[in-house]
Write a protein that binds this DNA or RNA. Sequence first.
RNA 1: GGAGGGAUAGCGAAGAGGCUAAACGCGGCGGACUGUAAAUCCGCUCCCUUUGGGUUCGAAGGUUCGAAACCUUCUCCCUCCA
Length: 415
Amino acid sequence: MNDWKSLSLSQKEEVEEQFEVLSRGTEKTIPDNGLKEKLIASITSKTPLRVKLGLDPSAPDVHIGHTVVLHKLRQFQHFGHIVQLVIGDFTGRIGDPTGKSATRKQLTDEEVKANATTYFKQFGKVIDMEKAMVDYNSTWLAPLHFADVIRLASQTTVARMLERDDFEKRYRAGQSIAIHEFFYPLMQAYDSVALKSDIELGGTDQTFNLLMGRHIQESFGLDKQVVMTLPLLEGLDGVKKMSKSLGNYIGIDEDPKSMFGKAMSIPDNLMVKYFTLVTDISANDLEKIKTALSDGSLHPRDAKLKLAWTLVRMYHGESEANEAKLNFLSVFQKHALPEHLEEVPLQISQEKIWIIDLLVTKLHLFKTNGEARRMILAGGIKINQEKINDVHLEIKVENDMVIQVGKRRFLKIRG
RNA sequence: GGAGGGAUAGCGAAGAGGCUAAACGCGGCGGACUGUAAAUCCGCUCCCUUUGGGUUCGAAGGUUCGAAACCUUCUCCCUCCA
């Protein structure tokens, strides 16, 4: 194949530089030397690599956990490689088997389109969408005949399928595995055939599916893609992977204030990981932060402020970041009211209103009276900075009245 | 095709005729502490202006003074054998 020795000096440097950047922060590359070989081939033949990322069209809200892989794609783009985004509109009909719900609701074409649009808008904040290739996998999966599907299925075995972690667990636990769930990895793998991908990226939880791509490509007589997995980012709880359904995420579309606040709530031991995986700070600055943290010259709180600030800056710009920081400091360190309160228009009247009615019916802060009542009894409601402790309280609503729920939810009444 | 096991609050899981609005764990939400957190401790976690009332334990009927628990039918899930 490509011989390292036949490269010119500048080509070698080019390979080394790309390799250094592209392999940074990855969890695993399979095979070990695969990336370097692809790079050598790319540089000698002056052909950009085709780097694939598959997307699930059912969950269009992008959070910073997704951006781990986007940042990696961005780096590939930086070196002139081609990013292939695959909208799994067809695979979406199955849903990646999680064991939780084997069947998921089928999306209509319109929903898929709408979700994809949302994706692209948000992805554009990290990668260059102008240069990205976008495909829907129904394009090549839908026309397959049953005979084609059998041929595809015959390329692998049940034993091989059961190597997949969650299949194996479910099988051993005596839980059901529907046959069609086996097709998910096969379909994703076939995407790589259709797109002749050189590299496929994914989270570590995707390893099996990504490897299946290599296997199936080979059986179709293609070069095997290199699999690069990226670490899964733990969410705000610091334990489970960031996901929307767990509610432990920071959405990249979120407003500066909550983005800042959420970033501040991650456990200390994840700060460096966040800096590494989801910010754009340089390797140099990262090292500085690491050493300052370990020798104690940087307070973890300040490091986290920097992290939160950086995230907001990346998605909203510097001035918003500064503002979010000031807001955070005043609200949480000085226990002052936030600079800008969410204002809620409400009819002001002379009549007194029952506090629970106000919270539930007028302000929709709670779904049920019981919830509001409990919150009051727990001491979680403040009006104009004053704790409410009487569930029977009747109050007169006034303009500019500030209602606080818990520590971080504020509302201002606008008459 | 045959045999068996199961369905309980957001999840997991006790309960096997009245003491059960249903133990316990997780999760969630509040409060205290702090550096926002985490850890820890405390409280709440079906609905209702609540020392009371209403509606719950896959669904529908039934037995009983009384059922989440017993019976019947149905729906769904799982396992094993063929």
